[in-house]
Amino acid sequence: MLSIAVDETRCNGCRRCEAVCQVVSLANGGLALPRIRIHRGEGGWRVRICRHCEQAPCADACVSGAMRADPARGVVELDASRCVGCYSCVMECPFGAVFMVEIEAGGCRAVKCDGCRERGDLWCARYCPTGALRAGETSGAVATQIRRERAWRLHGAQPYGGGARWR
Protein backbone atom coordinates (compact mmCIF):
# COMPACT_ATOMS: atom_id res chain seq x y z
CA MET A 1 0.00 0.00 0.00
CA LEU A 2 1.00 3.63 -0.44
CA SER A 3 3.41 4.71 2.23
CA ILE A 4 3.28 8.30 3.51
CA ALA A 5 6.04 9.41 5.85
CA VAL A 6 5.01 12.30 8.07
CA ASP A 7 7.69 14.00 10.14
CA GLU A 8 5.84 16.50 12.29
CA THR A 9 9.11 17.83 13.69
CA ARG A 10 9.90 19.22 10.24
CA CYS A 11 6.51 20.81 9.68
CA ASN A 12 6.61 24.60 9.90
CA GLY A 13 2.90 25.20 9.49
CA CYS A 14 3.20 26.81 6.06
CA ARG A 15 0.11 24.89 4.87
CA ARG A 16 1.32 24.72 1.31
CA CYS A 17 0.16 21.10 1.35
CA GLU A 18 -3.39 22.15 2.23
CA ALA A 19 -3.41 24.71 -0.57
CA VAL A 20 -2.15 22.28 -3.19
CA CYS A 21 -4.50 19.53 -2.03
CA GLN A 22 -7.46 21.85 -2.27
CA VAL A 23 -6.54 22.91 -5.80
CA VAL A 24 -6.03 19.31 -6.90
CA SER A 25 -9.32 18.27 -5.33
CA LEU A 26 -11.19 20.95 -7.24
CA ALA A 27 -9.31 20.22 -10.45
CA ASN A 28 -10.35 16.56 -10.18
CA GLY A 29 -14.00 17.47 -9.89
CA GLY A 30 -14.21 17.25 -6.14
CA LEU A 31 -14.93 19.70 -3.39
CA ALA A 32 -12.73 22.73 -2.86
CA LEU A 33 -11.21 21.56 0.36
CA PRO A 34 -7.97 19.96 1.48
CA ARG A 35 -7.79 16.32 2.56
CA ILE A 36 -4.67 17.05 4.58
CA ARG A 37 -4.99 19.34 7.59
CA ILE A 38 -2.38 21.14 9.64
CA HIS A 39 -3.20 22.05 13.22
CA ARG A 40 -1.33 23.74 15.99
CA GLY A 41 -0.44 21.17 18.60
CA GLU A 42 1.54 21.18 21.81
CA GLY A 43 5.03 22.34 20.92
CA GLY A 44 4.60 22.12 17.19
CA TRP A 45 2.35 21.24 14.30
CA ARG A 46 0.10 18.28 13.78
CA VAL A 47 -0.28 16.85 10.32
CA ARG A 48 -3.48 14.95 9.68
CA ILE A 49 -3.33 12.83 6.59
CA CYS A 50 -4.44 9.32 5.76
CA ARG A 51 -1.70 6.68 6.04
CA HIS A 52 -3.52 4.19 3.83
CA CYS A 53 -3.16 1.55 6.49
CA GLU A 54 -2.77 -2.09 5.53
CA GLN A 55 -5.44 -3.05 8.10
CA ALA A 56 -7.40 0.15 7.90
CA PRO A 57 -9.77 0.49 10.87
CA CYS A 58 -11.93 2.90 8.88
CA ALA A 59 -12.57 0.23 6.26
CA ASP A 60 -13.49 -2.32 8.93
CA ALA A 61 -15.96 0.07 10.49
CA CYS A 62 -17.60 1.40 7.34
CA VAL A 63 -21.20 0.24 7.34
CA SER A 64 -21.98 1.10 3.74
CA GLY A 65 -18.98 -0.32 1.92
CA ALA A 66 -17.88 3.18 0.93
CA MET A 67 -14.46 2.79 2.55
CA ARG A 68 -12.50 -0.04 0.97
CA ALA A 69 -8.86 -1.00 0.72
CA ASP A 70 -7.78 -1.19 -2.91
CA PRO A 71 -4.52 -3.18 -2.87
CA ALA A 72 -4.11 -2.83 -6.64
CA ARG A 73 -3.95 0.95 -6.41
CA GLY A 74 -2.33 0.75 -2.98
CA VAL A 75 -4.81 3.09 -1.33
CA VAL A 76 -7.78 3.01 1.01
CA GLU A 77 -10.49 4.32 -1.26
CA LEU A 78 -13.55 6.28 -0.19
CA ASP A 79 -16.48 6.02 -2.58
CA ALA A 80 -18.38 9.24 -1.91
CA SER A 81 -21.52 7.97 -3.61
CA ARG A 82 -21.88 5.22 -1.04
CA CYS A 83 -21.09 7.28 2.03
CA VAL A 84 -24.08 7.91 4.30
CA GLY A 85 -22.37 10.18 6.82
CA CYS A 86 -22.57 7.84 9.81
CA TYR A 87 -19.32 9.13 11.44
CA SER A 88 -17.97 5.61 12.03
CA CYS A 89 -14.73 6.29 10.16
CA VAL A 90 -14.21 9.56 12.04
CA MET A 91 -14.52 7.53 15.23
CA GLU A 92 -11.92 4.98 14.04
CA CYS A 93 -9.08 6.89 12.43
CA PRO A 94 -6.23 7.30 14.93
CA PHE A 95 -4.75 10.06 12.76
CA GLY A 96 -7.94 12.10 12.57
CA ALA A 97 -7.51 11.93 8.81
CA VAL A 98 -11.19 11.65 7.89
CA PHE A 99 -13.19 14.86 7.71
CA MET A 100 -16.94 15.29 7.50
CA VAL A 101 -18.39 17.84 5.14
CA GLU A 102 -21.94 19.01 4.80
CA ILE A 103 -23.52 18.33 1.48
CA GLU A 104 -26.08 20.35 -0.38
CA ALA A 105 -28.73 17.67 -0.25
CA GLY A 106 -28.56 17.80 3.54
CA GLY A 107 -26.58 15.65 5.89
CA CYS A 108 -22.88 15.08 5.55
CA ARG A 109 -20.34 12.70 4.17
CA ALA A 110 -16.72 11.75 4.74
CA VAL A 111 -13.75 13.07 2.84
CA LYS A 112 -10.14 11.92 3.01
CA CYS A 113 -6.88 11.67 1.11
CA ASP A 114 -7.32 9.75 -2.13
CA GLY A 115 -3.65 9.03 -2.71
CA CYS A 116 -3.31 11.23 -5.76
CA ARG A 117 -0.19 10.47 -7.72
CA GLU A 118 1.67 12.94 -9.85
CA ARG A 119 4.69 11.38 -11.48
CA GLY A 120 5.04 8.98 -8.60
CA ASP A 121 4.62 11.46 -5.79
CA LEU A 122 1.71 12.84 -3.86
CA TRP A 123 0.98 16.46 -4.63
CA CYS A 124 1.34 17.49 -1.00
CA ALA A 125 4.71 15.75 -0.69
CA ARG A 126 5.96 17.38 -3.87
CA TYR A 127 5.21 20.82 -2.56
CA CYS A 128 6.29 20.37 1.05
CA PRO A 129 9.29 22.67 1.46
CA THR A 130 10.72 21.04 4.57
CA GLY A 131 10.48 17.38 3.74
CA ALA A 132 7.90 16.82 6.45
CA LEU A 133 5.90 14.79 3.94
CA ARG A 134 7.39 12.10 1.82
CA ALA A 135 5.47 9.47 -0.05
CA GLY A 136 6.57 6.13 -1.37
CA GLU A 137 4.83 3.81 -3.72
CA THR A 138 4.62 0.65 -1.63
CA SER A 139 5.57 -0.13 1.92
CA GLY A 140 8.09 -2.75 0.79
CA ALA A 141 9.99 -0.45 -1.53
CA VAL A 142 9.91 2.33 1.04
CA ALA A 143 11.32 0.13 3.82
CA THR A 144 14.12 -0.99 1.54
CA GLN A 145 14.99 2.59 0.70
CA ILE A 146 14.89 3.69 4.33
CA ARG A 147 17.08 0.78 5.35
CA ARG A 148 19.61 1.63 2.66
CA GLU A 149 19.70 5.35 3.48
CA ARG A 150 20.18 4.75 7.17
CA ALA A 151 22.70 1.94 6.75
CA TRP A 152 24.75 4.28 4.60
CA ARG A 153 24.53 7.11 7.09
CA LEU A 154 25.57 4.89 9.99
CA HIS A 155 28.11 2.60 8.36
CA GLY A 156 29.10 3.80 4.96
CA ALA A 157 29.35 7.54 5.13
CA GLN A 158 31.82 7.53 8.00
CA PRO A 159 35.60 7.86 7.38
CA TYR A 160 37.30 5.54 9.84
CA GLY A 161 34.32 3.50 10.81
CA GLY A 162 32.27 6.03 12.70
CA GLY A 163 30.24 5.53 15.82
CA ALA A 164 28.14 2.61 14.77
CA ARG A 165 30.82 0.29 13.52
CA TRP A 166 32.41 -2.18 15.85
CA ARG A 167 35.93 -3.13 15.08
Binding site: P57, C58, Y87, V90, M91, C93, F95, G96, V98
Partner: peptide, 21 residues
Protein backbone atom coordinates in the same frame (compact mmCIF):
# COMPACT_ATOMS: atom_id res chain seq x y z
CA UNK B 1 -18.52 18.21 17.66
CA UNK B 2 -16.90 14.82 17.18
CA UNK B 3 -13.73 16.16 15.63
CA UNK B 4 -10.73 13.95 16.37
CA UNK B 5 -12.86 11.13 17.80
CA UNK B 6 -10.53 8.56 16.29
CA UNK B 7 -7.51 10.20 17.87
CA UNK B 8 -9.28 9.91 21.22
CA UNK B 9 -10.11 6.27 20.55
CA UNK B 10 -6.45 5.52 19.91
CA UNK B 11 -5.56 7.27 23.16
CA UNK B 12 -8.14 5.15 25.01
CA UNK B 13 -6.70 1.98 23.49
CA UNK B 14 -3.24 2.98 24.65
CA UNK B 15 -4.53 4.06 28.05
CA UNK B 16 -2.81 7.43 27.64
CA UNK B 17 -2.28 9.67 30.62
CA UNK B 18 -1.91 12.85 28.55
CA UNK B 19 -5.26 14.24 27.53
CA UNK B 20 -4.78 17.98 27.20
CA UNK B 21 -4.32 17.96 23.45
Amino acid sequence: DVEGAGIIQAAIRRGDAGWRQ
